[in-house]
């Protein structure tokens, strides 16, 4: 725990004092952001539809059909979007980062990098960290869009909701603060995934077993960190954003 804070400090120092390795950064952004779209789209659509259907079944009993989309929207934007995108990206990207850096460590590629006057944090960690931090909010927005769109389509075609009412309520009840809350969470989760993935990779044990363990720990620990911090972020940011 202490050393991961040290790594974070080193990352921030490097961000402000050394030149960014643009080619590495673009490569990572492509892998982490662009290529994560499929899993995030699937997760968003599936959750949006299921959540919409279940909410509708309950609300229908109380004749509150028109509140369905609002509830789905708020839940997607403030909680489900960032958390689900975070968990999926932790599984896909966090594991890949830890495995790649871990393999580089056990095959002495990181030592080789160091002998060639290159700091592993500058060259490996910073591009990955920045890429996850930038990609996560974008992927989260994508999750919202697909999730809400899927819920809307399901709502008006199958469940018989009034499309215009739903949209109007959604627009009326979702505040800028909700959107901000979701985005800030996404940025924070991105940082968690990038940092823990890199930390586990750089400090990986020996051999194939070490790489396996590092990968496993990266995923488990980022997921736990996301779930735990989500609760506190909700409480803290609510206090901050909605005075």
């Amino acid at each position: 725990m202490g050393s991961i804070v040290l790594l974070a400090g080193e990352v921030f120092r490097s961000l402000f004092t050394t030149r960014l390795h643009w080619d590495e950064f673009i490569k990572q952004l492509h892998f982490i952001g662009w290529k994560s779209q499929v899993i995030v789209l699937t997760t968003g659509a599936s959750t949006g539809m299921v959540f919409c259907a279940q909410t509708f079944f309950q609300f229908h009993k109380m004749k509150m059909d028109n509140a369905t989309l609002t509830v789905v929207g708020i839940a997607m934007i403030t909680e489900l979007g960032p958390v689900l995108a975070g968990l999926m990206v932790a599984g896909r990207v966090g594991a890949a980062i830890a495995a790649e850096l871990g393999t580089m460590r056990v095959t002495e590629q990181i030592d080789a990098l160091r002998t060639m006057a290159t700091h592993p944090v500058d060259y490996l960690v910073v591009p990955r960290f920045l890429a996850t931090v930038i990609a996560m909010p974008l992927l989260t927005v994508l999750t919202w869009a697909v999730g809400i769109a899927a819920a809307y389509v399901l709502g008006i075609t199958v469940l018989g909701l009034e499309g215009a009412y739903g949209l109007r309520h959604l627009y009326f009840f979702v505040d800028v603060q909700d959107v901000m809350l979701g985005c800030i969470k996404a940025v924070f989760f991105g940082g968690i995934i990038g940092l823990i993935g890199c930390y586990r990779g750089l400090n990986c044990g020996e051999g194939a077993e070490g790489v396996g363990r590092a990968t496993n720990q990266a995923v488990v620990q980022s997921c736990i960190a996301i779930l735990v911090s989500n609760f506190f972020l909700t409480l803290f940011l609510r206090g901050l954003l909605y005075p």
Partner: peptide
């Protein structure tokens, strides 16, 4: 510290036992 070492290492070239090429 590691950053100061980086400048010292500029004068070195090192061949690793396992080559340690970037794959």
């Amino acid at each position: 510290n590691e950053r100061e070492l980086l400048t010292v290492r500029r004068q070195f070239g090192m061949l690793f036992q396992g080559a340690a090429l970037f794959d």
